[in-house]
Each structure stands twice: as C-alpha cells, then as structure tokens.
C-alpha cells in the first residue's frame, strides 16, 4: 500500500516539475540575456562544419562554439508557409554576408527545423537552395527551449569569449535585410 502511494506521489511530482519547467521555458529568449544552453545536432558534412568553424568530433555542439561574433538563428519549419515565403529573403541575407569580406567570418546563420527530421530539413534545403546549415529538431527539444515560438522566428546572438548575449529576438519575416544586418552589426559593436 505504502509503495503504491509512494509511486503515485512520485508521478504527481514529476508532472508538477514538468509543468513548472515547461512554464519557465515558455517564453522566447529575451534581448540582453544569454541564450539558453542547448545541444544542437552537429552537421555531418565538412562544408557546414567549416562554415561554422566546428570540429567533427562528437554528435552535438553549442551556439557559443560557433566561430563568429554574431550568430543568426532562424527557427523555421518545412511545413510553415511563412517560412517558405521568407526563404528567398534569408538566402539574400546569407549572400549579403558571404559577399562582404568584413562580415563573412564574423556573422553566421543557422536554421533550426522545429519538429523536422533530417530528411525534411534536407528537402527544404534543396527546395530553396539554402547555403547555410539547417539543423533538424525532430523532437522539438530546441523549439521548447526557445519558448515554443511561432515560425519563422529570428534570434541573433553576440558571442564574446564563449558567452552569448541575445541582441535580436522577434517573430516574423525579416523584411528589410539591409536594415536588419546593419542593426546587428551596430548592436554587436562590429566595424
């Protein structure tokens, strides 16, 4: 009898803790705060590893390990119409950065496919000829940490000495990418 009560009490506690944790995580990372820690699946192709300045060892990586001053995170889904419509604009942003010698090694972009499998991420990448890495988040683990935001959602992070600081966090399309990029450069103190 005691065992049964103990078991049920344990389960209730787990439910309570899970709800508390869920509530705590249920907001998007705010500007001015560190990005919550998260383990992203390491890309399995050398081009993407080189782009991010990551080593091929291990299965996961953290945003703070990316060799850049600014990392732009696009939380998207292959199944999201607005993300599909925004894909060409994000590609233009990527081109703008890659074609600017002053920004090329300082600013990187990654997409996080909320609820998307590796196959689905690959399908989206091929469809829109996305040049930057797209990371699958099949079990919504990263999406939950990011506050279960609607998509597309953009977060920009400044990295200094292995520490992250969110400098942009907003729902919806980027619209004017020149202004967006200029704002990030200014916020991060890049020249």
């Amino acid at each position: 009898m005691f065992k049964k009560i103990f078991g049920l009490a344990t389960a209730m506690l787990v439910i309570f803790m899970a709800n508390v944790t869920g509530a705590a995580e249920n907001t998007a990372p705010p500007v001015g705060r560190p990005l919550p820690e998260m383990e992203l699946l390491l890309p399995n192709n050398s081009g993407e590893l080189k782009y991010l300045g990551l080593r091929s060892s291990g299965k996961t990586f953290q945003i703070s390990q990316i060799k850049a001053r600014i990392v732009i995170l696009q939380i998207y889904s292959m199944y999201c119409p607005y993300c599909q419509a925004e894909a060409p604009n994000v590609n233009r942003l990527s081109g703008l950065i890659e074609n600017n010698p002053a920004l090329k090694d300082q600013v990187k972009i990654i997409g996080i496919g909320a609820g998307n499998t590796a196959f689905e991420v690959g399908t989206y990448k091929r469809k829109y000829a996305v040049a930057f890495p797209l990371i699958p988040d099949e079990d919504f683990k990263i999406h939950k940490i990011m506050g279960e935001v609607r998509t597309p959602y953009f977060i920009a992070v400044k990295i200094t000495g292995g520490h992250t600081e969110v400098i942009y966090s907003r729902l919806g399309a980027l619209e004017n990418i020149d202004l967006f990029l200029a704002g990030l450069v200014r916020s991060a103190g890049l020249k």
Partner: peptide, 16 residues
Amino acid sequence: LVVCFFACSAYAASDA
C-alpha cells in the same frame, strides 16, 4: 503518460 504528453503535444505553429 507524462513523458508521452510532453513529447507528443509539441507542434510548431506557423505565424501564417
């Protein structure tokens, strides 16, 4: 059931 609830209830709503 708890694990299933939190694993199964996730979805990413498009802003569309």
